[in-house]
Design a protein around this nucleic acid. Structure first.
Lengths: 342, 342
DNA sequence: ATTAGCACTCGAGCTGGTTGAGTGCTAACA
DNA sequence: TGTTAGCACTCAACCAGCTCGAGTGCTAAT
């Protein structure tokens, strides 16, 4: 991106801010009046023309003002945006809105989403820790019917997953207990991925296994863990998005709701943000959310269980407001998870 | 409801059917032409005026045709609607779209919702069996951190619920195992409600209890089961509803989405339908869904686990089409649950 | 380099006219 | 007496034309 001189920057910033506030095209006159750089509308217009040339602004039609393009927002966020920190008072307030004691994982995540969307007035997303990266704690088998077993496994953080598998032979509950005892001893403290690795390796030595119990245990737990467990995503406050003027037309509403309904797009996005540290901002068509941005952050605990949360709002959302909220919430959740796992 | 003579009935039926097909006010001319009762538009008009008088029809404005009121739909459904049965071919087709083998409960429910909304082109609802009425199968405890326990309980049907409780004293995993063994033996085969009853009674004799283990077991499981477990609701295909012309205005869309988002209204409705047998139809403002109807049916298995499923569509939906689908799906799900629990 | 001035553009909103579907009423008819 | 043809009336939807005002781009003066 070519450098902008200071005046251009100031004007771009002013336009973006005004547009964020009003959701309407902003004109040269408004800029020269509302912001106190002593410039006539004409001069502002010249600068605006340059900015349009560079692809940072565009005008919906001849006699309307300018609105920032995606690229314009990008520039604003990269170079101009100053994130204010939350004041201690705000932090305290935020902290006190979260009351997680005695809640199980799912409920915590849902509650975080609710609060996130409540504070931001946009849609809140929370993706539950990817099970694969969490630490194994316990496995249990329940016999459902002939040959059909329910496997329940629990992570260090108290996340529960369950799955139905079918065993070749019928196994009674007593033996299942023995098997789970054995597995709990063997696999304790490993991440699910490590568990998978270990099982795979041991399975290869299967030929040499005379120990029936162990053999069964291996094949059962292998079946239980073999396919990827999909991430769980909690979406809250979609209807808040519909209040935004940019989604006021039926068509745009439909598109938006469809996007939120499929969840896949959102999961992909949050997955992408998983690798990075701190707050990330995805803008507009960079993601498959036309006209939207996603502000996301990861959370984790000492042991490494990783999830992501964020806020989806219109591209024109108030980043300086929402970014610190997302950031602090992620930290808060991380701390809670640590406490849970202690 | 006053009786209608045959001609009025025929005309009402024709109007409702045409309106269902077109979503537009239907006029006297159209009725007299499209349906072959040999009546002039003028005569039809007279009847229509009567029907309007009785509150079965209304006209959006003077020079538009008539549309059925809620009461009109009610009458149509109660007296005029003929539910055709599914042909064997359709049944077979429906049956084959459901593939549940090796799925766990949650996934089955989600899949049912998806198919339901796919077939009806409206929103599909599935409410997972109320846990309280299901049969207890197994309970497990996992120690999370000092004094915090994760309880997992499984129903006969393989439904898994979990919850965090805090114990007064720290209990190690070995003792937890003993406790769960004890409880599994004691409580096997009872419904959750029966379990609650039993625990309550035994707790009252607590004074006389010298058996530490038993004492602990009782208090733990009591804590685990004490509050109501909320029903889980799966909603699919909301965006399909947005395609319907009656929800084409931004305002109506917003209202609709808000309704679906809160879920509470829907749960209440399905709860209400729980008591009844067979397919039920709720219309419009009778429920809190303005302009919508809900077609619902219960499912259960021999052991009595009860849930409900249904389709929410515009009031003007094709009942003769959707009712049999809902009906048959409920039967299908019941049968699957039986198989699961066998 | 900045700015005042001005012609120009274009959407929003208002008006008035036309069209066509549909009604209610009345009088004639079987 | 029930049915119907005829007719005047109503009203939303559509369209064309109009004005208004916000905002632009360009040019010439400062």
């Amino acid at each position: 991106m070519a450098e902008l001189n200071e005046r251009s920057q100031k004007i771009l910033e002013a336009i973006v801010k005004d547009y964020i506030a009003s959701a309407e095209p902003v004109g040269s006159r408004a800029i020269s009046r509302r912001h106190h750089f002593n410039l006539s509308p004409a001069s502002v217009r010249n600068v605006m023309a340059d900015l349009e040339e560079m692809g940072l602004l565009c005008s919906p039609h001849t006699s309307a003002g300018r609105i920032p393009t995606e690229k314009g927002f990008q520039y604003y966020i990269d170079s101009l945006l100053q994130i204010r920190d939350l004041s201690d008072k705000e932090k305290k307030q935020l902290r006190s809105s979260y009351r997680f004691s005695g809640m199980k994982m799912e409920d915590i995540m849902q509650e975080v989403g609710r609060i996130l969307s409540g504070l931001s007035k946009y849609a809140g997303l929370v993706m539950v820790p990817k099970f694969a990266t969490t630490v194994f704690r316990q496995i249990e088998f329940v016999r459902l019917s002939h040959g059909r077993l329910l496997v329940i496994y629990v992570s260090e953080t108290g996340l529960v997953q369950n799955k139905v598998i079918s065993a070749t032979a019928d196994i009674d509950q007593r033996e299942l207990e023995k098997i789970s005892n054995y597995l709990n001893r063997e696999l304790n403290g490993l991440t699910i991925n490590q568990v998978r690795e270990k099982l795979k390796k041991e399975m290869q030595d299967e030929m040499t296994l005379y120990d029936q119990l162990r053999k069964r245990a291996l094949s059962l737990s292998f079946a239980a863990l073999q396919d990827e467990i999909e991430d769980q995503l909690y979406v809250t406050g979609t209807s808040l998005m519909l209040e935004q003027p940019e989604f006021s037309s039926p068509d745009q509403m439909r598109r938006l709701i469809q996007t939120f309904e499929s969840k896949k797009i959102l999961i992909d996005l949050l997955d992408r943000s998983q690798s990075a540290q701190g707050v990330q901002i995805f803008i507009g068509s960079e993601v498959d959310l036309k006209g939207c941005s996603l502000i996301s952050a990861n959370f984790s605990n000492r042991k490494g269980a990783i999830g992501a949360l964020g806020v989806v709002g219109p591209m024109r959302m108030d980043y300086s407001q929402v970014v610190p909220i997302v950031d602090f919430t992620a930290q808060l959740v991380s701390r809670v998870l640590d406490r849970e796992a202690e």
